[in-house]
Design a binder for these strands. Structure first.
Lengths: 182, 182
DNA sequence: GAATTCACTCTACAACCGTGGAGCGAACAG
DNA sequence: CTGTTCGCTCCACGGTTGTAGAGTGAATTC
């Protein structure tokens, strides 16, 4: 038997439900397109409650796009496979919300640039080439394009396909752009 | 001396000025973010006039993102250089408006998918490989990612750089993914 | 010169937005 | 059992949006 949840537990649970609803709504419509009322409806809650929990729409968005801890983990993906697999299969809700908003919200654009820059830096460190920074930036940008085309534009050749088939071609291609040192 | 412009000519001129303002505004803020009032202000005109010319916001957007004829020209760019050069230097206003809106407007997403599909088909025809369609889709998606990272996210390694430097690396890399037949 | 067209502005409306404050009712502390 | 906390809902406000219709004055036509 479960013990009856306490008041605090219930509050935390609705807060989490609101956050999920917000990520879904931001992911579907972007920051500007999503509305507090829409998020509240999806969470089965009054619009005011959303703001009582997260202060403002902007505040809610900042929490909603905060990447899951295991994605910002310090252990650099030595193989691109990790990043690729994550990007090619289902997107994490926070990532999806950030991607959806990055072209219309300066805040989201900043967050995305920062994220891409980190990934590019990680990658550049694995190479000894003089133009490693540029090549790393090109690489992460290409992954970004693939992600958008597959998950947001539904380009048939990419969205219909098994992730493994894409990875099989992409990985050696990426390695050709920025060969690992040694 | 110029002859005084007729009434029709003046009307056409303001219509064109409104369209330019709309492309700029859509390009800066996206379909949802841009407002009729903002477009009117930029064109130095009353908001109502915008609708009298283009019917509705949606109608205006459709005209605003219509690609310039020389970009849809039937002559396939045999070399990617053309596409790349266009994408790496200044973006045409219509393209910029479409790109900015593609993640938040289903109509824009459809138009962009269609455009990418056409380009991918053109490219795939230059190859005899069995997986040419997939590789072509990957290629145009990568260009898309590069364009976004450079022009919309301002990823420093890409946006600060001379287009030629990027092309010098990108072109052979792209050729490696989808080598031209023969 | 008078009559008419029409490019353009003014005003208004209904819908929607983010947000704040008052109030209710059930879970808590004593 | 009584008093209090507080998670939650209701209602309201000011502002912005897309859009429609009436009005105005100058260019056009006869």
């Amino acid at each position: 038997m479960e013990s009856a949840p306490s008041r605090d537990e219930r509050r935390a649970a609705t807060a989490a439900r609101i956050l999920e609803a917000a990520q879904a709504e931001f992911g579907d419509r972007g920051v500007e397109g999503a509305t507090i009322r829409g998020i509240a409806r999806r969470a089965g809650v009054d619009p005011s409650l959303v703001l009582q929990h997260y202060g403002s729409k902007k505040g809610l968005f900042e929490v909603a796009v905060r990447p899951e801890p295991d994605l910002t983990a310090a252990d650099v993906p030595r193989h691109l496979g990790e990043v690729l697999e994550i990007r090619m299969r289902e997107l994490p809700p926070a990532t999806r919300a950030l991607l959806r908003s990055m072209l219309t919200s300066p805040d989201a654009a900043d967050a995305m640039r920062e994220y891409l820059q980190e990934r590019a830096d990680d990658l550049a460190r694995t190479s000894a080439r003089a133009d490693a920074d540029l090549r790393a930036a090109m690489l992460v940008s290409s992954i970004l394009g693939l992600t958008i085309a597959r998950h947001f534009l539904d380009l048939p050749a990419l969205s219909d396909l098994d992730p493994a088939a894409i990875e099989a071609i992409a990985e050696p291609w990426y390695a050709a752009l920025l060969p690992p040192a040694g």
